[in-house]
Amino acid sequence: MSTTGRGTPEQSATADREIVISRVINAPREMVFVAFTEVRHLSRWWGPKGFTTTTQSFEFRVGGEWDFVMHGPDGTDYDEWITWTDIAPPERIAMLHGESRGDPNAFESVLTFEPDGVATRIQMRTVFATKELRDEAAEKYHAIEGGQQTLSNLAAYVTEIVQKGAEG
Protein backbone atom coordinates (compact mmCIF):
# COMPACT_ATOMS: atom_id res chain seq x y z
CA MET A 1 0.00 0.00 0.00
CA SER A 2 1.36 3.41 -0.83
CA THR A 3 1.10 6.31 1.55
CA THR A 4 0.50 9.99 1.08
CA GLY A 5 2.99 12.60 2.22
CA ARG A 6 1.17 12.85 5.55
CA GLY A 7 1.85 9.20 6.40
CA THR A 8 -1.75 8.08 5.93
CA PRO A 9 -2.59 5.21 3.59
CA GLU A 10 -3.51 6.32 0.10
CA GLN A 11 -6.88 4.92 -0.91
CA SER A 12 -7.00 3.27 -4.33
CA ALA A 13 -9.07 4.99 -6.99
CA THR A 14 -11.44 2.01 -7.03
CA ALA A 15 -11.72 1.39 -3.26
CA ASP A 16 -15.41 2.38 -3.07
CA ARG A 17 -16.20 -0.01 -5.94
CA GLU A 18 -14.27 -3.08 -4.83
CA ILE A 19 -14.57 -6.14 -2.64
CA VAL A 20 -11.35 -7.81 -1.51
CA ILE A 21 -11.35 -11.26 0.06
CA SER A 22 -8.31 -13.33 0.99
CA ARG A 23 -7.55 -16.64 2.61
CA VAL A 24 -4.56 -18.82 3.38
CA ILE A 25 -4.91 -22.35 2.01
CA ASN A 26 -2.69 -25.11 3.32
CA ALA A 27 -1.43 -26.31 -0.08
CA PRO A 28 1.23 -25.30 -2.61
CA ARG A 29 0.16 -22.47 -4.90
CA GLU A 30 0.58 -24.59 -8.04
CA MET A 31 -2.09 -26.95 -6.68
CA VAL A 32 -4.41 -24.09 -5.68
CA PHE A 33 -3.91 -22.51 -9.12
CA VAL A 34 -4.78 -25.79 -10.89
CA ALA A 35 -7.98 -26.07 -8.82
CA PHE A 36 -9.00 -22.76 -10.45
CA THR A 37 -8.01 -23.70 -13.99
CA GLU A 38 -9.49 -27.14 -14.64
CA VAL A 39 -13.24 -27.59 -14.88
CA ARG A 40 -13.07 -31.04 -13.26
CA HIS A 41 -11.89 -29.26 -10.10
CA LEU A 42 -13.97 -26.06 -10.36
CA SER A 43 -17.25 -27.92 -10.56
CA ARG A 44 -16.46 -29.64 -7.23
CA TRP A 45 -16.02 -26.49 -5.13
CA TRP A 46 -17.14 -23.32 -6.95
CA GLY A 47 -19.75 -21.17 -5.28
CA PRO A 48 -21.03 -20.35 -1.81
CA LYS A 49 -22.05 -22.97 0.73
CA GLY A 50 -24.91 -25.16 -0.52
CA PHE A 51 -24.51 -24.20 -4.19
CA THR A 52 -23.63 -26.59 -6.99
CA THR A 53 -22.35 -25.78 -10.47
CA THR A 54 -23.20 -27.19 -13.90
CA THR A 55 -20.78 -26.24 -16.67
CA GLN A 56 -22.15 -25.62 -20.18
CA SER A 57 -18.76 -24.85 -21.77
CA PHE A 58 -15.25 -24.18 -20.51
CA GLU A 59 -12.06 -23.00 -22.19
CA PHE A 60 -9.29 -21.79 -19.88
CA ARG A 61 -7.20 -19.40 -21.96
CA VAL A 62 -7.08 -15.64 -22.41
CA GLY A 63 -10.27 -14.86 -24.32
CA GLY A 64 -11.75 -18.25 -23.42
CA GLU A 65 -15.08 -18.50 -21.67
CA TRP A 66 -16.77 -20.46 -18.93
CA ASP A 67 -20.56 -20.67 -19.26
CA PHE A 68 -22.18 -22.28 -16.24
CA VAL A 69 -25.24 -22.41 -14.02
CA MET A 70 -25.03 -22.10 -10.26
CA HIS A 71 -27.82 -23.95 -8.48
CA GLY A 72 -28.81 -22.36 -5.17
CA PRO A 73 -29.77 -24.44 -2.16
CA ASP A 74 -33.35 -23.12 -2.56
CA GLY A 75 -33.55 -24.48 -6.13
CA THR A 76 -32.93 -21.14 -7.87
CA ASP A 77 -30.66 -21.32 -10.94
CA TYR A 78 -28.25 -18.49 -11.71
CA ASP A 79 -26.81 -18.21 -15.22
CA GLU A 80 -23.16 -17.19 -15.04
CA TRP A 81 -20.46 -16.32 -17.55
CA ILE A 82 -16.74 -15.67 -17.17
CA THR A 83 -14.11 -14.74 -19.71
CA TRP A 84 -10.43 -14.89 -18.79
CA THR A 85 -8.63 -11.61 -19.52
CA ASP A 86 -5.16 -12.44 -18.16
CA ILE A 87 -3.48 -15.63 -17.00
CA ALA A 88 0.01 -15.80 -15.43
CA PRO A 89 0.49 -19.32 -13.98
CA PRO A 90 0.71 -19.88 -11.04
CA GLU A 91 0.56 -16.25 -9.85
CA ARG A 92 -2.47 -14.50 -11.28
CA ILE A 93 -5.81 -14.89 -13.03
CA ALA A 94 -7.92 -11.95 -14.23
CA MET A 95 -11.47 -12.33 -15.45
CA LEU A 96 -14.67 -10.56 -16.38
CA HIS A 97 -17.74 -12.12 -14.69
CA GLY A 98 -21.39 -11.52 -15.47
CA GLU A 99 -24.67 -13.28 -16.10
CA SER A 100 -23.91 -13.59 -19.82
CA ARG A 101 -21.61 -12.26 -22.52
CA GLY A 102 -22.29 -8.54 -22.93
CA ASP A 103 -23.72 -8.12 -19.42
CA PRO A 104 -23.47 -4.34 -18.76
CA ASN A 105 -23.08 -5.05 -15.03
CA ALA A 106 -20.24 -7.56 -15.41
CA PHE A 107 -17.42 -7.06 -12.92
CA GLU A 108 -13.68 -7.61 -13.05
CA SER A 109 -11.87 -9.91 -10.64
CA VAL A 110 -8.16 -10.47 -10.18
CA LEU A 111 -7.01 -13.49 -8.21
CA THR A 112 -3.46 -13.62 -6.94
CA PHE A 113 -1.75 -16.71 -5.55
CA GLU A 114 1.16 -15.90 -3.21
CA PRO A 115 3.37 -18.45 -1.47
CA ASP A 116 2.98 -18.29 2.32
CA GLY A 117 5.53 -20.80 3.59
CA VAL A 118 4.23 -24.17 2.36
CA ALA A 119 0.72 -22.69 2.09
CA THR A 120 -0.82 -20.25 -0.41
CA ARG A 121 -2.42 -16.86 0.24
CA ILE A 122 -5.13 -16.31 -2.33
CA GLN A 123 -6.59 -12.85 -2.78
CA MET A 124 -9.69 -12.10 -4.83
CA ARG A 125 -10.04 -8.42 -5.72
CA THR A 126 -13.32 -7.63 -7.47
CA VAL A 127 -14.02 -4.22 -9.00
CA PHE A 128 -17.51 -3.15 -10.02
CA ALA A 129 -18.38 -0.44 -12.56
CA THR A 130 -20.06 1.71 -9.89
CA LYS A 131 -20.26 1.98 -6.11
CA GLU A 132 -23.99 1.23 -6.39
CA LEU A 133 -23.33 -2.09 -8.18
CA ARG A 134 -20.76 -2.98 -5.53
CA ASP A 135 -23.21 -2.14 -2.74
CA GLU A 136 -25.99 -4.13 -4.42
CA ALA A 137 -23.68 -7.15 -4.79
CA ALA A 138 -22.69 -6.91 -1.13
CA GLU A 139 -26.17 -6.26 0.29
CA LYS A 140 -28.62 -8.05 -2.02
CA TYR A 141 -26.42 -10.93 -3.20
CA HIS A 142 -24.19 -11.25 -0.11
CA ALA A 143 -21.07 -11.15 -2.28
CA ILE A 144 -18.65 -10.80 0.64
CA GLU A 145 -20.02 -13.81 2.54
CA GLY A 146 -20.40 -15.73 -0.73
CA GLY A 147 -16.80 -15.01 -1.69
CA GLN A 148 -15.56 -16.08 1.72
CA GLN A 149 -17.61 -19.28 1.51
CA THR A 150 -16.31 -19.96 -2.02
CA LEU A 151 -12.69 -19.65 -0.87
CA SER A 152 -13.55 -21.84 2.13
CA ASN A 153 -14.92 -24.48 -0.26
CA LEU A 154 -11.72 -24.21 -2.31
CA ALA A 155 -9.59 -24.64 0.83
CA ALA A 156 -11.55 -27.73 1.91
CA TYR A 157 -11.35 -29.23 -1.59
CA VAL A 158 -7.60 -28.65 -1.99
CA THR A 159 -6.93 -29.92 1.54
CA GLU A 160 -8.81 -33.12 0.64
CA ILE A 161 -6.61 -33.55 -2.46
CA VAL A 162 -3.45 -33.02 -0.36
CA GLN A 163 -4.62 -35.59 2.21
CA LYS A 164 -5.50 -38.15 -0.47
CA GLY A 165 -2.08 -37.62 -2.04
CA ALA A 166 -0.37 -38.21 1.31
CA GLU A 167 -2.40 -41.39 1.85
CA GLY A 168 -1.95 -42.80 -1.62
Rank of each mutant, 00 (worst) to 15 (best):
V20Q: 01
I21F: 00
I21S: 00
I21E: 00
S22F: 03
R23T: 01
A27K: 01
A27Y: 01
P28Y: 02
P28L: 03
P28D: 11
R29C: 05
R29Q: 09
R29N: 06
R29P: 01
E30Y: 05
E30P: 06
E30C: 06
M31A: 14
M31L: 15
M31Q: 15
M31I: 13
M31C: 10
V32S: 11
V34N: 11
F36I: 10
T37A: 14
T37P: 05
T37N: 07
E38F: 08
E38C: 10
V39P: 02
V39M: 06
V39W: 02
R40S: 15
H41M: 10
L42C: 12
S43C: 12
W45Y: 10
P48T: 08
K49D: 07
K49N: 07
K49C: 01
K49G: 01
K49H: 08
G50W: 01
G50S: 01
F51W: 14
F51S: 06
T52L: 08
T53R: 02
T53F: 03
T54D: 09
T54Y: 02
T55D: 08
T55F: 09
Q56P: 05
Q56T: 15
Q56S: 14
S57H: 09
F58V: 08
F58P: 06
F58S: 07
F58Q: 06
F58I: 08
E59R: 04
E59F: 00
V62T: 14
V62M: 05
G63D: 08
G63I: 09
G64V: 04
G64Q: 04
E65H: 12
E65Q: 13
W66I: 13
W66K: 12
W66V: 13
W66G: 11
D67R: 15
D67A: 12
F68S: 08
G72V: 12
P73K: 06
P73R: 05
D74I: 01
D74H: 00
D74C: 00
G75D: 12
T76P: 01
T76N: 13
T76K: 13
D79K: 10
E80G: 15
E80M: 15
E80L: 14
W81G: 05
W81P: 05
W81R: 04
I82Y: 07
W84I: 12
W84Y: 15
I87V: 15
I87T: 06
I87F: 04
P90I: 03
P90A: 04
E91A: 12
E91T: 10
E91F: 06
R92V: 07
R92F: 06
